[in-house]
Design a protein around this nucleic acid. Sequence first.
RNA 1: GCCCGGAUGGUGGAACUGGUAGACACAAAGGACUUAAAAUCCUUUGAGCUCACGCUCGUGCGGGUUCAAGUCCCGCUCCGGGCACCA
Length: 821
Amino acid sequence: MKERDYNFADIEVKWQKKWHDSGDFKSTADASKKKYYVLEMFPYPSGRLHMGHVRNYTIGDIMARFMKMKGFNVLHPMGWDSFGLPAENAAIKNNIPPQKWTADNIAFMKAQLMRMGFGYDWDREVTTFKSDYYRWNQWLFITMFERGLVYKKKSPVNWCPSCQTVLANEQAENGVCWRCESKVVQKDLSQWFFKITQYADALLAGHDEIKDNWPEQVITMQRNWIGRSTGLQVNFKLESGEDFPIFTTRPDTVYGVTFMVIAPEHPLLSRVTDPHVKQFIERLKNQPMAERTADDKEKEGIDTGLRVINPFNGETLPLYAGNFVLMEYGTGAIMAVPAHDTRDFAFAKKYGIPQKLVIDNPASPIDIDKLADAYTLEGVNVNSAQFNGLRNTQAKEKIAEFAEAQGFGKRTVNYRIRDWGISRQRYWGCPIPMVLCDTCGEVPILEKDLPVILPTDVAFNGDSRSPLNSMESFLNTTCPKCGRPARRETDTMDTFVDSSWYYAKYTSPSSEKILSPEEADYWLPVDQYIGGIEHAVLHLLYARFFSMLMHDLGLIKNREPFKRLLTQGMVIKDGSKMSKSKGNTVDPDEIINKYGADTVRLFMLFASPPQKDLDWSDKGVEGSFRFLSRVWRFVNKHAHLYQKDRAPGAETEKLKKIRTELHRTVKIVTNDIEERMQYNTAIARMMELINTINQVEESEWETVEGRAVLSEILERFIPMLFPFVPHIAEEMWEMLGCTTTLSGRPWPEFSQELSIRGESEIVFQLNGKIRAKVSVPSGITKEEMEKMALEHERVREMTGGKEIVKIITVPGKLVNIVLKV
RNA sequence: GCCCGGAUGGUGGAACUGGUAGACACAAAGGACUUAAAAUCCUUUGAGCUCACGCUCGUGCGGGUUCAAGUCCCGCUCCGGGCACCA
């Protein structure tokens, strides 16, 4: 019989077409079936798929196909996060309209996704730059506006004075403009904010619901990002008698305050008249945020000349402006206690400010003059009036109570998280649906007038300013309230808004409303979300925020959008992340051409567990290809022996063992996919099985019993391969004479009884060191194991004459004999 | 700097709840087949010692807990992700 070559190119095209034509991955809500919604983070259409995408979507495809085989009604959609900076950069550089650039990229990348054999329901494709999607961004915006969840305030942006334009952080690295290298300054602009702080407690509380199915590190990062802290707001007084509130988590140190620090943006600083001081403050303001708060950067500040009075002891304190104090956190001002705060300590040393000890270490009293760094541990209050002698943890409470009683303090909760600034001074984004009317002020567009369409007939003049600003046809409109002439908002929304609710839109992409309640209720929440760990905080927090918001608007039933989360690692080559700038990228297309999509998929999953970084290796890819070729050859050679209907027949010892290995493999692979999400070990197990069955003599397969076992292997092994390498699996399945496609087949079952090996190896240890290995029947009792150990020749030799202190036996594993030394 | 991770042979990784470290691959070396090459198949492969039975060491570094530590605890080093306008 002539054997067929593994012609992956033809096979893959053939099955991709079949799946597509038969609508294999289309999904319909059906209340009678259990649903499973698998979602991968949608890509930014940057031009070509990179290996990170391939990895992400391969993992998703495995889950979707596996769950479908498990009998679930699976939703597995794909879309495009298609607004953003790169399209504008391309427009400026090559004068291609952003829309064209983006649409071309989408077409190209969609074809690439199809070549990988990913099973998506393309009828549900969501593209954020299209107005039928972004109109709902605008609808959500005005709905939030009406509920007081949107407000406008001044906020600093990176500004290039030479280009006269706003810069993204990425464009302002090292404080220099990316295009002209001018020094970047901070400029205040009036911008729109979403009140995510109002949801801070809800976002924290929601963690309880998801914590068992999300990586712990993501929950921790989010919790720290939200940064809830309880403390005391203390109203210090300016010399002029006005209140000067600060927030502190350390009220116990309030008697140790020796100076105050205020953010350089603080409005109070308008009172400063000294030109030298004013100039210094300006300079602090223009330091990029990342630098200001970085502790490796020197803390800087200047005495403003203003004085503040501590309400606890009446002391007069100097007020500094300091770069490390943030206007956005607390009240934009802090009390500084150099003796008990590391940062304050360094600042005080630098500017020669005195320090005062108020918490002493009872074990070894502190000499304030010899203090090398702040004492931040617990201790006992000193120099703290009536609070002396209290443990500082108690003093914290007592001092807070005292301040509240005296009327100059209030216990409050503070969050590190700030409201979400969504205004972007850019063209390629969703227009913010507001107009500015001279009479009525900021007015939202009426719902019936949505969407506010982003004009696409725009010209870029080689600079990065948004063309909307000079487009009269867009700018001029009438006020929805009074009908008089008004001007449109030209800022667009942060693209994170687009990606904060797209998972919901997939459930009902063609609905005339934002969502169809029936379909949203059926499909949501997402059962399994998959994406890069780099999104642990921003995207995943914003998406949770929007989900809660949509819940509160009565649009969806669940508060949490993603039941289970898998964060996959990066794709690394030669020690660093694959990136264009490093020149270490590998183009998926090249590898598909050389080995086929199935090999790429298999390697992606085999090279490392999904959560960890994956080291790309060309040689490793060859290994995956070799495995598929080996399987192909085996099936090719033995397909004619396959019998669908067969008598079980008595088996030889060898065949029995092979059968055990088969059932063991199904058991382990099922568990690896379903419970552990560790595909590399699942594949390793399947490789072992192939290695085992390849050792069987050809003649043995040809016996009646051999054919039965062989048929059972083929019947279970090929479907098991299907989620990983669907094309080759389908082709081999067809080779057996089966006519139904594998995607409609159930996942193979296994017999618990048959999966247990007859014998297992255990070890005998003496004082924890292995001294012998023996093979024992499975199911042996503890007593039998101990007896065997003590009777073992080598063990007896080595224990002879020594006293046995105790014997530890782990069933099925080991016996450890502890001897007196 | 702050928050969160990671480190296991020449390489990617395995070891699931503290219980046989190195499964499965890659690479390398040797061999078979071949006129030859490719492909395929077989053998060896953590380090050191030993004629051998075996022994000692070994999971980034330094300590600790335990009969037993890659796994738990304390203290470090290095690498990576995030830090709010890249997505």
